[in-house]
Amino acid sequence: MSLLAADGITKRFAGITALQGVSIALDEGERVGLIGPNGAGKTTLFNCLLGLLRPDAGSVSFDGRDITRLPVYRRARLGIGRTFQRVELFSGSSVRDHLLFAHRIRLGTGALWKDLLGLGLPKPAEIERCDALLESLGLGGMGDEPIEALSLGQSRLVEVARALMTQPRAVLLDEPSSGLDRAETTALADTMARIQAEQGFGLLLVEHDVELVATFTERTYVLDFGRLITHGPTSEVMRDPEVRAAYLGDFAAGPS
């Protein structure tokens, strides 16, 4: 039984079929890539997995439970974390606030009555936990920084940290290399690989950067025109002639 699975997902927009019977699966502790040219349906599938879109046919399950009709926040509370292609942080909040709040949401410890009694203020143990994660992501000492003062690379790491504070069992990364240079992308990938190895969550990477997918993931799914054209171990997928024709072009020719 897969941790997160999409089974026969079909999604249409005003007569245009964005996804046609697509099935993918993500197991605990593995790193899976999802690639495809522009318009292939990657983001649509991503949104169906997260609950931002409801599929016209097919189902989404998490740990054996059908979550097709669950709203976004319920899926998040089950243990599905995500990052965004266009960084989505909480303006006006500090870096630590992002983590602290995610932590409380996960534990369900926030309540109005506690706030009114003064029991909702940040506790030293919570702050320590947040700072420890920031330290491990290379953001040590930045807890009090307003998020407006961060670089794009740092912002992406804060997104990752926020997702990790919810103790996810599956993390979905939406084009994390977008806007980063090669060095920043490599640093982010190394950090993610380390954290993923430590915590053991499943990781689904939706990405344009084929080099990142080739080096970072173990299995890869390839979409084209809303259909799954192939999937399997990443090294094999990269050599698939259909994939090369549809998407990879000259890239796969080199390494292979």
Binding site: L50, A76, R82
Partner: peptide
């Protein structure tokens, strides 16, 4: 969107 993605 991001708030809901962590369960808000």
């Amino acid at each position: 969107t991001a708030a809901e993605s962590i369960g808000v």
